[in-house]
Design a protein around this nucleic acid. Structure first.
Lengths: 148, 148
DNA sequence: ATAAAAAAGGACAATTTTATCCGAATTAAG
DNA sequence: CTTAATTCGGATAAAATTGTCCTTTTTTAT
């Protein structure tokens, strides 16, 4: 199976976008609500939100009225940041054929063509903010759960 | 961890390119030689070559002087074909956020931006033949194993 | 203070992917 | 026909990812 992002990363992106759709009201959201909103397994999502809080992308608050909220402005959080936290930078700098060292001086057979694809992907992730993504959800132009 | 291709697919691509570098001599290569040439675990590579032979991308011959060879011309085998066989078409048609159904009428928040990336990737894989990739290896411009 | 509500954290289970091993089947060559 | 060289196929193991469960800790509200 080919994957572009891990499940953990997919859920992270969706969770952070969801929080951004509610941050105009500066509202926290609790785990069950988040998991429901993005259609993810609750216990697994808990681990992920924990990790995002540890990495300072979210703020977590325990106790009644607690929950999770964005740490900072939605327009200053890029998709790149989330992917980097959850999956590392191998998607941006790794080799398509798995070379430990793939470079212009010792390239794999698809090095140049995939460099262009990686740059394209990296550019999209760097320039897409959570605010932008959340905007399309707010306007009903996109969704956080799939049809069945 | 983010991956673009599975290990099985990485090894497949490298193995097929290796066979193409030897096909001018119309030579078969045996498993140990292939695994050595591409730096892959031999037993796992055996399973992969088996699968490629089952799917008619390779021809396998048992017994003394046996081995594997390309089934058809190297310039008529695209990277796309190999990826499709080994990893299915989810990289080409799947949703970056894992939606079962992600479409223009019910898109995920990154649908359009990732459609462009997928199209870019699909184009590269469709238009890159094994012959072309093997050519760069033959000319010493690219390699099938990484430096350490 | 106490009780209730939430996240934190550890242990564990399930699934998928990657990898190994070995005997069986097939084929070529003498 | 026999032997040796190969791939084939099944069983199994190891590792990574995904997922669950339960107890502890922290915090709010009464």
């Amino acid at each position: 199976m080919i994957i572009m992002f891990s499940k953990a990363c997919e859920y992270s992106i969706k969770a952070v976008i969801y929080l951004a759709t509610r941050s105009e009201q500066n509202q926290r959201a609790r785990l069950p609500e988040i998991a429901e909103a993005i259609g993810s397994p609750e216990a697994f999502t808990a681990k992920i939100l924990q990790e995002l809080a540890r990495k300072k992308l979210l703020i977590s608050v325990k106790g009644p009225k607690g929950g999770f909220e964005l740490n900072g402005d939605a327009d200053e959080i890029s998709l790149y940041k989330i992917v980097e936290i959850m999956d590392g930078d191998s998607l941006f700098h790794g080799c398509a054929l798995g070379f430990k060292k793939c470079s212009d001086v010792h390239p794999c057979p698809v090095h140049n063509k995939f460099k262009a694809i990686r740059d394209h992907l990296t550019g999209v992730l760097l320039t897409t903010s959570i605010k932008e993504a959340a905007g399309t959800v707010d306007e009903g132009q996109s969704f956080l759960t799939s049809l069945k």
